[in-house]
Design a protein around this nucleic acid. Structure first.
Length: 445
RNA sequence: CGGGGCGUAGCGCAGUUUGGCAGCGCGCCUGCUUUGGGAGCAGGAGGUCCCGGGUUCAAAUCCCGGCGCCCCGACCA
């Protein structure tokens, strides 16, 4: 782009490509849904400032919505984490599907939707005064080999919800941070953080895997899930000693997290962080992804610049947008089928019309009309799949349903007696009769 | 790389638990009938039961070893 665009006057610019892509996927699955080779359409926008980048982003976003609408694929744009690609605001276009690999949380009231990896919840309970919790000071309890919530729960006879889960992480600044959350919930590690790996545990011997706890931890940041701030009971936690836990740990008395936020993976029934109504989870397929990259890449590149209005050299504000074309085919089939087979949306159907000659081998007139209809429809600009096989009508009907071509024209003795043929819509199942004249003029209605 | 499952006719599978004639559906071949919703009847062909070894009078079935495929997870612009 640096060779093509020199001035702010040339902006905005959006370029695209449709290319084969290769990924070293650890486990390809579900046919076209995730393969090591696939076709991808992606595009990139370049703007002079953030406000204009957002406009370009919105144009691409709206275009994607229109594409999916025309394809007959219902999609929900959801807030997502940007993964390795970087940048700030981004959306995944999720097609609800039982075969999907992703889940998103959606609010039943305000419509807020976010990938399960990004979704947060609200906890609508008053913060509890620690002094109101009647519990003696924390004390040790031996928990040999009980390094999991389940094991501690079974050993001590307490519910998972009464145990505090402590997850050791490296945060986005590289600092060791412990996330504490209710033991009956999965931890959601914020974007940019990572959980401890083998090397981290080796480097921080004060943190005993399976027995980590937030009490008396020096020089380690502790953050807590919202639910802990409103918990009206003491917790069981790790004692930071092998085979030992602490009981009667009260949040705010025995330790105080630096801050409270949503650190659990959202579950169905959790409250929307925006409006407080219940959220539900939807299984889905990621059909497309859009990103506001901002200066994420261009600020690190020497030549990704243009000359701005005031004469200074400025980096481009970028957006990037991708649709998995190969995957789209699978999503398309998922979204557009019934028990008889595919139902191609007209805009992407490989043929407009399938022409069935019924009993042509025994009726010369049928064969003649079908041949003529084939030519007429083609001359009128239709793409036609012509079934002139010598098989029974039932076989042709079933195959036509299976292939899912939008329009089916049936030429047979029954109709020809009245100089008619039938036209059937695969999507609606509606059959109408048209005259031979209409058909031979290349028209379907 | 972990966890689970599977391997028997062209395809899909049952049979393996409790060792005892190699089965079913579809497809295929022949004949007759049928022909606007995946035809019917009759007859027929088709097997390295993944491979190797072991136990046994006898192994698709039990034991040991190997190979292959699928699913789940890790992974994933």
């Amino acid at each position: 782009m640096s060779g093509e665009v020199e001035s702010y006057r040339q902006l905005p610019v959006t370029v695209y490509q449709i290319q084969s892509k290769f990924r070293d996927e650890a486990r390809p699955r579900s046919g076209l849904m995730r393969g090591r080779e696939f076709t991808m359409s992606d595009s990139y926008s370049f703007d002079a400032n953030k406000e204009l980048m957002v406009l370009s982003y919105q144009r691409a976003f709206d275009a994607y919505l229109r594409i999916f609408e025309r394809l007959g694929i219902p999609v929900t744009p959801v807030e997502a984490v940007s993964g390795a690609i970087g940048g700030d605001v981004n959306h995944e276009f999720m097609a609800p599907s039982l075969v999907g690999e992703d889940h998103y949380a959606s609010c039943s009231n305000c419509g807020l939707a976010a990938n399960i990896e990004a979704a947060t919840r609200r906890v609508d309970v008053e913060r509890v005064d620690p002094s109101s919790i009647d519990a003696p000071a924390p004390s040790d309890v031996a928990t040999p080999d009980a390094g999991t919530i389940e094991a501690v729960s079974a050993l001590l006879g307490v519910s998972a919800a009464q145990i505090m889960k402590s997850i050791a992480c490296i945060d986005d600044t590289g600092a060791v941070t412990i996330i504490v959350l209710p033991g009956d919930r999965e931890a959601r590690v914020p974007h940019g953080w990572r959980m401890f790996d083998e090397a981290d545990f080796a480097a921080h011997s004060e943190l005993k895997r399976g027995f980590i706890g937030p009490v008396d931890l020096d020089n380690v940041r502790v953050v807590g899930d919202l639910a802990l701030a409103s918990a009206a009971h003491p917790y069981v936690t790790g004692a930071n000693r092998v085979d030992t836990h602490l009981i009667n740990v009260v949040v705010g008395r025995d330790f105080t997290p630096e801050s409270f936020a949503s650190y659990v993976v959202v579950e169905s029934g959790d409250l929307c962080s925006n409006c407080g109504h219940e959220m539900f989870l939807q299984r889905s397929v990621e059909a497309a992804h859009t990103f506001q990259l901002g200066l994420h890449y261009t600020s690190k590149m020497k030549n990704a610049t243009f000359v701005s209005e005031d004469g200074s050299e400025q980096p481009f504000w970028m957006g990037c947008y991708g649709i998995g074309v190969t995957r789209l085919l699978a999503v398309l089939a998922e979204a557009n089928h019934d028990e008889l087979g595919l139902i191609w949306p007209e805009v992407v159907a490989p043929y407009d019309v399938t022409l069935l000659a019924l009993g042509a081998a025994r009726n010369e007139k049928v064969a003649e009309v079908a041949e003529a209809a084939y030519e007429a429809l083609r001359n009128a600009g239709h793409s036609v799949l012509y079934d002139d096989r010598d098989v029974s009508p039932g076989v042709k009907f079933a195959d036509a349903d299976l292939l899912g071509v939008p329009w089916r024209v049936m030429v047979g003795t029954k109709g020809l007696e009245r100089s008619c043929v039938e036209v059937r819509s695969r999507a609606s199942g509606q059959t109408t009769e048209i005259s031979l004249e209409t058909l031979l003029a290349g028209q379907l209605s």
